[in-house]
Write a protein that binds this DNA or RNA. Sequence first.
DNA 1: ATGAAAGCGCTAACAG
DNA 2: CTGTTAGCGCTTTCAT
Lengths: 360, 360
Amino acid sequence: MNSRRTSPERPTGPGRATMRDVASRAGVSVKTVSRVVNDEAGVTDELVRRVTAAVTELGYRHNLTASHLRRGHRTASIGVLVQDLSNEFCGAVLRAIEDRARAEGVVVIASSIDEDAERERETAHGLVARRIDGLILMPASRHQDYLDTDRASGLAVVAVDRRPLVTEIDAVVADNQGGAAEAVGHLIAHGHRRIAFLGDSESIATAAERRDGYRMALRASRIGQDPALERMDLRTTEDATRATHEVLGLDDPPTAIFAARNVICTGAVVALQQLSLSGTVALVGFDEVAIGEFVEPRVTVVRQDTHTIGANAFDRLLARLDGDQAPASIEVVPTTLVKRGSGEIRAPRKSAKPRRAVRR
Amino acid sequence: MNSRRTSPERPTGPGRATMRDVASRAGVSVKTVSRVVNDEAGVTDELVRRVTAAVTELGYRHNLTASHLRRGHRTASIGVLVQDLSNEFCGAVLRAIEDRARAEGVVVIASSIDEDAERERETAHGLVARRIDGLILMPASRHQDYLDTDRASGLAVVAVDRRPLVTEIDAVVADNQGGAAEAVGHLIAHGHRRIAFLGDSESIATAAERRDGYRMALRASRIGQDPALERMDLRTTEDATRATHEVLGLDDPPTAIFAARNVICTGAVVALQQLSLSGTVALVGFDEVAIGEFVEPRVTVVRQDTHTIGANAFDRLLARLDGDQAPASIEVVPTTLVKRGSGEIRAPRKSAKPRRAVRR
DNA sequence: ATGAAAGCGCTAACAG
DNA sequence: CTGTTAGCGCTTTCAT
């Protein structure tokens, strides 16, 4: 271990050159090396030259972990906890965060939590131990009180995609309810009155919000809810395919489907193709869905602005780190209805009878 | 700054409790706190209890950045540099790496480099300054000598997806040439002799390898190459759609297409749909393509095993960190031909003349 | 303009 | 079983 002491100038070899190595090689003090490395003013050109030379000769690399220990204690790193890094939506949000972070010289430690609240907690605490400055979180947990201690000691936290259940945490979320209501309203405007809802588990806040938007749109047009047309707890594409078959097999089947998540929408597309109803039953999805542009008819979707969601989440985090003391708030990012065909299929005549439409 | 000195026991408030705070609160030495925090054996139950109590009362969190500075100098963190975090393939590989890393208590700093060699270099050096133990890299650069100094001082480096141009770096890549040859062989076996190749820029190693596999398969069946059927430099879906239209507009058009990348394959699907040739011209893609399962006919593809690629890259990195001194090697992960319909379309009679099909 | 010394929060090495 | 001391690599006083 003390080979260091004995040979203060190993140029290569295992182990890295330290500032002291550079200093002794350049014949200056450590502080001077520090000044040069950090581009501080007030060092003679001559010394800058000598230090720079020593740096390259020894292959010296500045050690930020040591540097952070001393100054300000900020590490210029943040944690980003998403459900699944390989998921389209999560990847897009992460990418938006990363782009803003890079611009600020902040690195991103990314991790998947797979809807597991326990893993969320463990991972978050693990990153706190590494002294991340802030945390952007797509919560799987029901409560985020496990972060109270850390927030109290300065950790900035922002939730994305899902509203946190702790009101003091900032959040940036899509307008799930509004987007869903717009989608369903769009279907109603095309004459549909029997509209199925296919959604994820109610315990996921976004899923519940989209369901609420669906109901709200029905109410706004005085269309009664039919529980048989509401299918929740659909986790996979296969679940959704099955559910689509089931609702279309009802005595009074829906003429339109609102699929409240990308995998669910994909499942609905498959079912409609299997039943040769793609051109007959209207469909609107939530989330950009990869296949949306390539099936016939192309799929109308409610698009979430992943770029804005990610970028604004980072900016909010940064503002907090810079001392913003405003009360926590929830930023709702608007969605966009992208009309591509499947959502513009009109309802068949019979279900558009004015009398039945009144209050079923 | 010295408020610390004056009030050694701020329980909450900004700033974090240190080991010394815990020690004084529990009435023990710092070393004892260290032992408890690190689960070291040989501390009285009574003291463990007192320390644990003080820890929770003060909201103490272990500071790994300080800890790493002292011991071994390993940070249990790695950098992962991919082309684009929001890309399907990159996301899948990253996820596989992350899962293995989590199991080993290693965190992943992820970053996109967007085919920009300069950014690759800067990002890598930035992470070295944070003392990552290792780096998994999907190289955009032509050369990786910029890592020589860091590799010499102990940085472990593994390339994924693309072979590095520095032979001393380990790599885990898909069998691009073999996969492409298998795809083209499959088309030949279905009677095709006019097979178009649609690929990315030749400067990207994987693209060139796939092109070589295509040529090799043609040669193996004594089918002459026709430069008019080879289209490179296709970057986007739109490029590919255009190129597909062009080759199909030739006097002697291809009866089959090999699309050597996911976005290219998507573009070919679009073109075939526009021309109503989806059921007539055979198509095999490279990479799992999102739409592959949902268009008619479903798309036959050469699938890359992203899970194995990512997991093995991490394991290789870990082996190096654990002192493995074996010479660098390139692990080639086999691909799988997934037959789903589009690749099994047979060539029309006339091109299947027995005389030309010398030895099928 | 440069340097010496102290210390960030922690742990290895050695007492007691 | 517990505590003291020194020091990881750097930066912040404060001298010179």
